[in-house]
Design a protein around this nucleic acid. Sequence first.
DNA 1: CGACTTTACGGGTCGCGTAAGTATA
DNA 2: TATACTTACGCGACCCGTAAAGTCG
Lengths: 102, 102
Amino acid sequence: MSLAQIRYFVAVAEEGNVGRAADRLHIAQPPVSRQIQALEAEIGTPLFVRTPRGMRLLPSGEAFLHRARRILNALEEATAAARAAGLTSAEVERGTVASRRG
Amino acid sequence: MSLAQIRYFVAVAEEGNVGRAADRLHIAQPPVSRQIQALEAEIGTPLFVRTPRGMRLLPSGEAFLHRARRILNALEEATAAARAAGLTSAEVERGTVASRRG
DNA sequence: CGACTTTACGGGTCGCGTAAGTATA
DNA sequence: TATACTTACGCGACCCGTAAAGTCG
């Protein structure tokens, strides 16, 4: 499983359709379709039902969607937190935090 | 950023040393070292201080470590939840849930 | 000089894009 | 026959492992 697969999954779940998800992700449809298949294969159960109108979430997909969003949010938060702590340390090393005059 | 990078980071943070982290991950040292560098480059700040004795977490690294663990836990939980919901649906479709006579 | 991290280099794998195929209403 | 998902195929990028180099007490 990769973060790309998780992002693709969320896009498809929210758009209800591989084509629009691909547009939103700025990539072609086939990679999205393939990665969704790989994700379902790894989890061991389908996440969508395929209809001629698009992709509809199964209960397994709904369950995964909530957690997928949490993972992506946690990822952004982790990056932001580390970056903020890093900047703070850099400021401390230059003695520019206590007074905030820098 | 990739899940592999996050896993490598946690291993290095917990082992305090690239070599032991690599052993634990069952891969060679150089990939671990490279991925940690790539992670730091992407975040934009160092996460460790390098000493001749190993790698020591900076405040930014501590901040990232907590979130990294949460991400990996959320990932496992997401897989388990989807798998469980999928099995339940499969049982429902075969009519084997209500009575549990398998 | 010993332990650890980093750089160099070659090979295999993975993922994307284009093009063609399949299916349903 | 229009719309949407899927398979086929070729190519570039990424990642790993081995080997060599750099660094600090």
